[in-house]
Simulated assay, not measured.
Amino acid sequence: MAEGLNRLLGDTPGRTIIKLVVISVVVGFVMSMMGFSPWDLVRFIQRGLRDLWNSGFAALGRVGDYLIVGAMIVVPVFIILRILNWRKT
């Protein structure tokens, strides 16, 4: 089971937590320097949900279009990266 968890996380749980903490501090510092706060993100999500409700869910059609266009790039790149990584192991 530990091997499966390590494979899922990409490393041991302890090292993964340390990496996430370091990256979180760096991202938090950069966001703070740019003037962003976590509350800005909360307000953005609230505003987006309110606009979605007010628009009668017409925006969902656009999200589906964005999903398909993005998946045309993301999925092949993901598959290629997984194949290249699989060869190394």
Rank of each mutant, 00 (worst) to 15 (best):
M1V: 06
M1T: 05
M1L: 09
A2R: 14
E3A: 13
E3S: 13
G4A: 07
N6G: 06
L8I: 02
G10T: 00
D11T: 08
D11N: 14
R15C: 00
R15H: 08
I18M: 13
I18Q: 12
K19M: 02
K19W: 04
K19T: 03
K19V: 01
V21Y: 09
V21P: 03
V22W: 13
V22S: 13
I23S: 10
S24A: 15
S24I: 01
V26E: 02
V26L: 09
V27P: 02
V27L: 07
V27R: 08
F29R: 01
F29C: 01
V30M: 10
V30A: 13
V30W: 10
V30L: 13
M31L: 13
M33A: 15
M33R: 15
M33W: 14
M34K: 14
G35W: 02
F36R: 09
F36A: 08
F36S: 06
W39T: 05
R43I: 04
R43T: 09
F44V: 06
I45P: 04
G48R: 15
G48W: 15
R50D: 06
R50P: 00
D51V: 03
D51F: 03
A58Y: 03
A58D: 00
A59P: 00
A59H: 06
L60D: 02
L60H: 03
G61K: 07
V63K: 07
V63C: 06
V63F: 12
G64D: 02
G64I: 03
D65P: 00
D65M: 00
Y66Q: 08
L67C: 04
I68W: 12
V69H: 09
V69K: 12
G70N: 05
A71Y: 03
M72H: 02
F78K: 15
F78D: 13
I79T: 02
I80A: 15
I80G: 11
I80M: 15
I80L: 15
L81Q: 15
L81Y: 14
R82Q: 14
I83R: 15
L84E: 11
L84H: 07
N85H: 13
R87V: 04
R87L: 08
R87G: 01
